[in-house]
Write a protein that binds this DNA or RNA. Structure first.
Length: 483
RNA sequence: GAGCCAGUAGCUCAGUCGGUAGAGCACCGCCCUUUUAAGGCGGGAGUCAUGAGUUCGAAUCUCAUCUGGCUCACCA
């Protein structure tokens, strides 16, 4: 690595000049953007400014040099001139590299070509870098390297840095919204004896002292409902969950889920609330309700249409679920549409396959899918007058389910029989059927008030509304195989 | 998990028919005191992803492996 050796040599040279290449602190007075915003005033007042940042470009001219300093606010040009900084400081400056952190103190001026520039009177090395940065013009393109060394991506590609600022804003506006509506943010265990609340395979870990296998949670649901049993009426959690499944542009091994539970309301109230919440955070984050996604515009303005699950399958696929009460009776319908049904799977999964193939891709503009079949909703309350359907909805846009909610099942005996049904599916080979959680059933038997519950994967939601190609783009360090 | 594509200097990329490994940026030396991807002259820098094979000779052809991307299938 010849460049590294060269920089190590410079490091020694700097030390010989009596310069500490790694000082502990620096007190800047301004950011790049602050200076640029009021540059005319700074020129008139000749006030000294002081900024700290990383050198990201150098344009040398012998006894004077322009260089670009980048800080989190943006970048600004600086000028180091032998006559002004003095021979020792200029000699040291020649040993600086692109990538080094420096502090620059001096007045602001305007160059012949009209660029506001800090005229360095004092230069302070704040950290010497030993490895070169990616190229200044093309940046860092290699996706593998961008994800493995995200810090280089953030340095080289400003739009990536901006994307993550947006993500933070997005999550904060979600949190602010829920707080403003009187919800309490809580934290519940990541390691569980029984992972529940979703159809997914868990990661397993081991507790040495107890000699006990534990699962990483796949959802937040069952613990949050225990808190509703405990007497809270409005709780939410934003937390990481883990699913041991395939990798793709739409799936992560760990992702951030938000779930909230609200006592005494049903899914209808939740649906209005969700519409309001989504519109709020989109407006707060992006300042508009019309979001570009690939070659389309998603229009989030309310109200969003609400489509009945059964009716939609009738309209779009010509299949009335009520006429196919068993898995066996439904299989020919799947085959008719070119789906070959897995013999291990139950009626619910078959319905799900049908929906994913026939319905979901066509749902581009924001809408709600409502009243899902019982078979695919093991934790949702039934409709009193239609026991094969549940009080459930999913917000959908860009052909993806961005959220899931229902009137929570609080009948402990019904919940017990649903778990038993899931257990049978597991025995038949459905690895993603839900596990029997006796502790949760006991909690329900102590009484849970009627309650609406909602969950959404933050990463996918944000990936779509930020027009990101993949969900991995909106996570700093997506899981990668070792090189 | 299946198919297709890619991997060459720190970065972005060329590399023809199999014949000594190339450019720009970055880095080093010299020149240059208002540049904007600064400029000029010169220079250093490589296990061509890895491992086998074919060949007098392989970045190039063959096979296997690794990593990534895209498409498809399944999970938010």
């Amino acid at each position: 690595m010849p460049e590294r050796a060269e920089r190590l040599h410079k490091l020694e040279e700097l030390r010989k000049l009596g310069i500490n290449p790694y000082p502990a602190k620096y007190q800047a007075t301004h950011t790049a953007v602050q200076i640029l915003k009021d540059a005319e005033q700074f020129i008139v007042s000749q006030e000294m400014v002081d900024i700290a940042g990383r050198i990201t470009a150098v344009r040398g001219h012998g006894k004077a040099s322009f260089f670009q300093l980048s800080d989190p606010s943006g970048k600004i040009q600086c000028y180091a001139k032998l006559d002004i900084v003095g021979p020792e400081a200029y000699q040291a400056f020649k040993l600086y590299d692109i990538g080094d952190f420096v502090g620059v103190q001096g007045p602001v001026f305007k160059t012949h070509t009209g660029e506001f520039t800090v005229q360095a009177q004092k230069l302070t090395l704040l950290s010497k870098s030993l490895l070169p940065l990616p190229e200044k013009y093309h940046g860092l393109q290699n996706v593998d390297t961008r994800f493995r060394k995200r810090y280089l991506d953030l340095i080289a590609n400003p739009e990536v840095k901006e994307l993550f600022v947006k993500r933070t804003k997005f999550v904060r506006s979600l949190r602010d919204f829920l707080d403003s509506k009187g919800f309490m943010e809580v934290e519940t265990p990541v390691m569980e004896l029984v992972p529940g609340g979703a159809d997914a395979q868990p990661f397993v870990t081991h507790h040495n002292t107890l000699d006990l296998d534990l699962f990483l949670r796949i959802s937040l649901e069952l613990h949050l409902k225990r808190l509703i049993v405990g007497g809270y009426e409005k709780v939410y959690e934003i937390g990481r969950v883990f699913r041991n499944e395939g990798m793709s542009t739409q799936h992560l091994q760990e992702f951030t889920l938000m779930e909230f539970y609200w006592a005494y309301v049903d899914y209808q109230t939740l649906m209005d609330f969700t519409e309001e919440m989504y519109c709020h955070i989109i407006k707060e984050t992006f300042g508009t309700m019309e979001i570009k996604y690939q070659d389309q515009i998603l229009n989030f303005n309310r109200p969003w249409p609400r489509y009945d699950y059964r009716q939609l399958l009738i309209d779009k696929a010509g299949i009335d679920l009520d006429k196919f009460p068993t898995a066996e009776s439904l299989k020919p319908e799947l085959e008719k549409h070119g789906i070959k049904p897995d013999p291990k799977l139950g009626r619910g999964r078959l319905i799900d396959q049908l929906y994913k193939k026939m319905i979901r891709p066509g749902l581009v503009q924001p809408c709600f899918l409502i009243d899902h079949p019982l078979d695919i909703s093991p934790l949702a309350k039934k409709h009193a007058d239609r026991p094969n359907y549940t009080q459930r909805f999913q917000p959908i846009f860009a052909g993806a389910e961005i959220g899931n909610a229902f009137s929570e099942l609080n009948d402990p005996l019904d919940q017990r029989s649903r778990f038993e049904e899931q257990a049978k599916l597991r025995e038949k080979g459905d690895a993603e059927a839900q596990m029997y959680d006796a502790d949760f059933l006991e909690a329900l038997e102590h009484g849970m008030p009627p309650c609406g519950g909602f969950g959404v994967g933050i990463d996918r939601f944000f990936a779509i509304v930020s027009n990101s190609e993949t969900v991995r783009e909106v996570v700093f360090f997506p899981t990668m195989k070792p090189e």
